[in-house]
Nucleic acid binder design. Sequence first.
DNA 1: TGCCAGATGAAAATGATTATCGTTTAGCAG
DNA 2: CTGCTAAACGATAATCATTTTCATCTGGCA
Lengths: 146, 146
Amino acid sequence: MLYNVRQIESTLRQRGYKITPQRRAIVRAITGCREHLTPAEIYGRVRREHPGIGLVTVYRTLETLAGLGLICETHAGGSCRSYLVRRPAGHHHHLICSDCGTVIDFTDCDLAGLERRLAREKRFRISGHLLEFVGQCRTCREAAGI
Amino acid sequence: MLYNVRQIESTLRQRGYKITPQRRAIVRAITGCREHLTPAEIYGRVRREHPGIGLVTVYRTLETLAGLGLICETHAGGSCRSYLVRRPAGHHHHLICSDCGTVIDFTDCDLAGLERRLAREKRFRISGHLLEFVGQCRTCREAAGI
DNA sequence: TGCCAGATGAAAATGATTATCGTTTAGCAG
DNA sequence: CTGCTAAACGATAATCATTTTCATCTGGCA
Ligand SMILES: [Mn+2]
Ligand SMILES: [Mn+2]
Ligand SMILES: [Zn+2]
Ligand SMILES: [Zn+2]
């Protein structure tokens, strides 16, 4: 369902990128987490196994992986940029709690028809989509006493 | 369809915010544009009519307006943060060009069924949604020679 | 094994956003 | 109309994320 370490390293190799311990560590950190991670968070995790790695390398590797479509770059509030392993199809769906920030992934949507229509009307070549519902999760709703 | 200057100023007044010339100018700049504007762009526009305004004031006012739900804050590639006048209902739909950053608004979607199902299954109280299609706009596709 | 393009990391530069703080002013009471 | 005061403003500095630069290192191949 999501890309795994083997697939990602294989793609890197195929495209002529070298497999370095740093890249391995970064890929492991991302695939080992189902949530979105900021570059700084990834740096923190990678450093535990691989002290001495540079934050710059993290940024560079994330850019490479996102360019290859292997991970998904998301921009949202707060530290703004974050990354998640990508599922082969180019779409993402989230339920976001506006109180605690929890992000829940859901898998199904039916936007193909809308996508085709928009591509035609607006002359866009659409490569992916992001669908996010914002609200209050069960826990936060109960905590708020509603 | 979208909030206008009068509605925005009225809301500010109701909530006890003062109507200053700076806020007026910022509100005018945003409502006078259908596209997303970054804080820096808004600053540039406001400065033409109101030299001497501080960039800090732009940031503060944008935060206030977004907090009141009068404008919509979006995060995307590039300069990352941008703002758009909001439509009263709590949803937004964008077509974003990943090359040049152009954002096109579209109005219709049919997510009510999905929203109800998710609310039930995930126990969320959903208050709004964001649907973004990412791709390449006509201009950029042609510039790329495809 | 040796080579070298590509990869790395330290350090500095840049750019966006936020915090501080003394000054100004919108809105209201008198 | 004044005068008052909490709110808002703007200059400046601080912070934080990201990018650039450049000297050094190394993965993968001959
Ligand atoms: Mn989808
Ligand atoms: Mn909608
Ligand atoms: Zn929550
Ligand atoms: Zn474009």
